[in-house]
C-alpha cells in the first residue's frame, strides 16, 4: 500500500482554505440534531449532527495506590453506554455496538506505567459477551494487533486507553491509540503527529470502531524529561469519557487536561508538544468533531472538580 506524500508546502497550501467546523462523515449515530446558521447567518434552516459524548465520574472508581474498582467502573461504563444509546439496560445498549456474529477486537493500551487496566477491559468484555459474542471471537490486545489473526478478522473494534500527555502527539488520545495498526509508527510522528487520523482510514480499521473509551481515572497532565511518566503529574479524576466519535472524545479529554494545567500552573501553559492532531482530525481529515460547539456532552455522576 502506498500513501500520498505530503510536504510542508501542501499544508501551507491547504491551511488557508480548510473549514474549521461542521465536518461530517464520522460514524456517530443517535446524535442530537441542532439548527445551525446558513453561511450568511440569516436563517436557521440547516441541521447538523452533534457528536454525543458521555463523561461519567465516580469518586469511588480509584482507590489507594491507584487501584481501580472493577464494580464501580462496570457501573460507570454501563451508565455511559446506556446514555449514549438511550437505553435503560446495558446489554440492550451494547447491542447497538456488537452483534453475536461479530468478531470484536478491544484495542487497549498496555504501557506498564499507565495502562488501560483490567477493570475497563473486563467491563467491556463482559458486556460484549452478554451481547452474544462468543469468547473465542473477542480479543484484547495492544502491541501486536497489526499481525493478530483475530484483529485482522475483526468486524468491530472497541478502542480503550488512558489519557495522558504524550511526547510525540501532545496527548495520548483515542486517535493515537491506533498507531500500532501501522508497521512503522514513527512515520506518523512528523509535525506532532498531525496526521494520525489517516490511520483510521486504513482497511484494517476503517469504519469498524463502534466505541471509544478514554479513561480519565488518573490522567497525566504534565511531564518533563525523557520518561513519559511521572507519578507527580497524575491526579485522580475518577472519570471515563465514552463516545462513537473518537475526535469528540479526545477533544473533551483534552479540555479536561488543559483545565487541570490551568488550575495547577495558573496559566494556559501549552503542552510541550502540541496536541493539534485532535483538531486536525476534524479540520483536515474529517474523522469527527473537535469543536465543543459540535459536541453534545452529557455529564453523569460525581461533579466535584470536574473542570469542564
Amino acid at each position: 500500500m502506498t500513501r500520498k506524500n505530503l510536504t510542508r508546502r501542501d499544508f501551507l497550501r491547504t491551511s488557508a482554505v480548510v473549514p474549521l467546523a461542521n465536518a461530517v462523515g464520522c460514524c456517530c449515530t443517535g446524535n442530537k440534531l441542532v439548527p445551525v446558521p446558513e453561511p450568511n447567518g440569516a436563517r436557521l434552516t440547516q441541521v447538523a449532527r452533534l457528536s454525543k459524548v458521555v463523561l461519567v465520574r465516580d469518586e469511588r472508581a480509584v482507590g489507594e495506590g491507584r487501584a481501580h474498582n472493577p464494580e464501580v467502573i462496570q457501573k460507570m461504563l454501563d451508565e455511559a453506554v446506556m446514555t449514549l444509546f438511550g437505553e435503560r439496560d446495558p446489554v440492550a445498549a451494547w447491542k447497538h455496538i456488537v452483534q453475536p456474529s461479530d468478531t470484536v477486537g478491544i484495542k487497549t493500551n498496555a504501557w506498564n506505567y499507565l495502562p488501560t487496566g483490567g477493570a475497563i477491559e473486563g467491563a467491556v468484555k463482559r458486556r460484549v459477551l452478554e451481547a452474544g459474542v462468543p469468547e473465542d471471537r473477542i480479543g484484547i490486545k495492544d502491541r501486536g494487533v497489526l499481525n493478530d489473526p483475530l484483529f485482522q478478522k475483526a468486524t468491530v473494534l472497541i478502542n480503550a486507553r488512558p489519557a495522558r500527555v504524550h511526547y510525540w502527539s501532545g496527548m495520548g488520545s483515542c486517535i493515537k491509540n491506533y498507531i500500532l495498526f501501522v508497521p512503522k509508527p514513527s512515520e506518523y510522528h512528523g509535525d506532532a503527529c498531525a496526521d494520525l487520523a489517516t490511520i483510521w482510514s486504513l482497511p484494517l480499521v476503517k469504519g469498524k470502531t463502534k466505541l471509544n473509551i478514554l479513561s480519565m481515572l488518573t490522567p497525566q497532565y504534565h511531564n518533563i524529561g525523557p520518561r513519559g511518566f511521572n507519578e507527580a503529574y497524575l491526579w485522580t479524576y475518577g472519570g471515563i469519557i465514552v463516545g462513537q466519535d473518537p475526535v469528540a472524545v479526545d477533544a473533551t479529554g483534552y479540555r479536561v487536561i488543559r483545565a487541570k494545567r490551568r488550575e495547577v500552573f495558573g496559566e494556559d501553559r501549552p503542552l510541550e508538544t502540541s496536541a493539534h492532531h485532535i483538531a486536525l482530525a476534524d479540520t483536515r481529515h474529517k474523522l469527527g468533531r473537535s469543536d465543543p460547539a459540535d459536541i453534545d456532552l452529557v455529564k453523569l455522576g460525581w461533579t466535584d472538580d470536574n473542570l469542564i
Binding site: W111, N112, Y113, H166, Y167, W168, S169, P185, S186, H189, P226, R227, G228, F229
Partner: peptide, 11 residues
C-alpha cells in the same frame, strides 16, 4: 519503549 514509551524513538 518499555521505559520511555514513544519518546524512546528519540534515543
Amino acid at each position: 519503549f518499555e521505559y520511555i514509551d514513544g519518546a524512546g524513538e528519540v534515543y
